[in-house]
Amino acid sequence: MNVVKALGRLWLVPVALVAWEVVTRVAEQPFFPPPSAILARMYELWFSGPPSHLLLTDGALADLGPSLARLFTGWLVTAVIGIAAGIAIGCSPRLSDYVDPLIQFGRAVPPPLLVPFFLALLKLGTPAQLATIVFGVIWPILLNTIDGARTVDRQHLETARIFGFSAAQRLWQVILPSAMPKIFAGLRLALSLALILMVIAEIFAGTDGIGYRLLYTQRSYLYPDMWGCIVLLGLLGYLLNSAFLLVERRVLAWHRGARQTT
């Protein structure tokens, strides 16, 4: 029953895949390998490893490992900085007035533009890559946190004041939880942005990672491999987003509950 339903919803996916396969086989264009060839290469490159490694090959670990490490380090470091700064700015209208023009400017700078600068300033590889990710990803986190901290319900703050909450209690028990839905929205946006910037950073300042392999395969005319990289990146984006939604659902269960009743 469920399978039938899923098929009813997803029928266009296999149809599109078959059409893609047929068209590419007929056209015989080297730039457009058929999806079966792409999948075969992806399997060879990354997913034919031993079960003890979750079927991942050494190549997969060599490509995915550094990329994911970069992505998560950049994202988490930025999250800590962005949330801390965002709470401070959101709670102080005065501070917010002072830094607002800087924030508006910072977020308007297209992050790729700074890659050559980071490369000149920092070392090729991880430092320049992390700088690229952090600079690009901080804005959605910062802006959403500021917004969340600024719009804490007045009555919640008054309740905290009446019952004599300490500053720490106010922060951890009132301000942070009520800003959490907006912070999570920012973090999710930031995660997909981090993936994009990871690719940019690896292409321009990299010696390993999926982004680097993407560039390498393109320059070496390995078109099925190149397509494999693109598909793998799409898969990664999909998985990251799904995993994040799963966590968000758990952490913000109260938020959904509260919204449904009001």
Partner: peptide
């Protein structure tokens, strides 16, 4: 298609 990082 949407999750594919656009620069890729």
């Amino acid at each position: 298609l949407r999750p594919i990082p656009s620069v890729a």
